[in-house]
């Protein structure tokens, strides 16, 4: 018997670098998490020491990143199929699934415990629930089962401002629920616009996106309906404690533009969309990014101006 393979294998050259592990945390999604959590923290009517605030945002971001890594571990099979995701660390062969799982679980536990120690148990419990919701409820269960995956799964992305608020106050209140609702209602039109112009990706991966299960016409109708509901909520929030004149002005302008975009998407059909390479849909998607940042930016501005007697009502 011989063991010719012993020690003859070439050294592994595809070992992951620091950047590959960082990419597992979905840095772009993390930007949104950091920003909205920070706004939640700033909007809270309680002052937080900057070091504690920084630590809270960092641990919320790490928790969000951990759920991203666990999502990539679970979805590696469909990430390999979709054009948009095939360069992620696992399908690209830079990180193994086991490494991603261990990395995600360790960071998730670390983030929750550290947030509890730095702030309070309510914030930590909300973070733990968010990770559970994104990984188990959305990634493992809803994403491959129902076309409502984006609607319900959107809740995971909506929790960060609530966690930020809880980190400061130790409670959940109407204001933090409103910020949650804003992201929750924004997510479906944002992702459905993406699904419209990333035509074949979800179909090939077998993900039951609304475009795949109910058709593209129904998706356009859904975008319009959700945008109308979102506009009512976003403008209505302007009259609450987290709103104010600045927020209201931003909300009125952006929601008018967003409604106009949704109306245009609704009026188009596939022939027109294909002819101009989904220009309107892509424009709507880009606007949706500015939309969210501007709304939360305005909430942060109102909170910053409040101590000077300028923000809020």
């Amino acid at each position: 018997m011989s063991d010719a393979s012993l020690n003859t294998a070439a050294p592994r050259t595809d070992e992951a670098g620091f950047g590959d592990f960082f990419a597992l945390l979905k840095p772009r999604v993390m930007t949104l998490v950091v920003f909205t959590a920070l706004v939640g923290l700033l909007a809270a009517p309680v002052s937080v020491h900057p070091v504690v605030g920084f630590a809270a945002i960092l641990f919320i971001a790490v928790g969000g990143g951990a759920s991203g890594a666990l999502n990539m571990w679970w979805d590696a099979d469909i990430d390999r199929v979709m054009k948009r995701t095939r360069n992620r660390p696992i399908p690209a062969g830079k990180v193994t699934g086991d490494e991603a799982f261990a990395f995600g679980m360790t960071l998730a536990g670390f983030a929750v415990v550290m947030l509890a120690l730095a702030t309070n148990f309510v914030a930590a419990a909300l973070l733990a629930f968010t990770i559970f919701f994104y990984v188990v409820i959305y990634s493992m269960w809803l994403k491959r089962w129902t076309p409502q995956n984006i609607v319900i799964g959107g809740a995971a992305g909506a929790f960060p401002p609530m966690i930020g608020w809880a980190a400061a106050t130790g409670t959940v209140s109407v204001e933090s629920v409103l910020m949650f609702a804003l992201i929750f209602m924004w997510t479906p039109p944002h992702f459905w616009a993406l699904a419209l112009f990333m035509r074949s990706d979800y179909h090939e991966a077998g993900v039951p996106m609304l475009t795949v299960t109910h058709g593209r016409r129904a998706t356009r109708v859904h975008i319009l309906v959700y945008t109308v509901l979102l506009a009512a909520l976003a403008v209505g929030t302007g009259f609450t404690a987290v709103g104010g004149p600045v927020y209201l002005a931003v909300a009125v302008v952006l929601n008018a533009l967003f409604l106009l975009g949704a109306l245009r998407i609704w009026r188009r059909d596939e022939t027109i969309a294909e002819a101009d390479d989904y220009r309107t849909e892509k424009k709507f998607f880009r606007l949706s990014l500015y939309y969210l940042f501007a709304h939360f930016g305005a909430i942060a501005l109102e909170a910053t101006l409040a101590p000077m007697g300028l923000g809020g009502w």
Binding site: P11, R12, T13, E15, A16, G17, F18, G19, F21, F22
Partner: peptide, 15 residues
Amino acid sequence: EHELHKRRFGRNLGL
């Protein structure tokens, strides 16, 4: 010096 060593160094430095 192999490219692998550079990557490993980068990872260790980052950590």
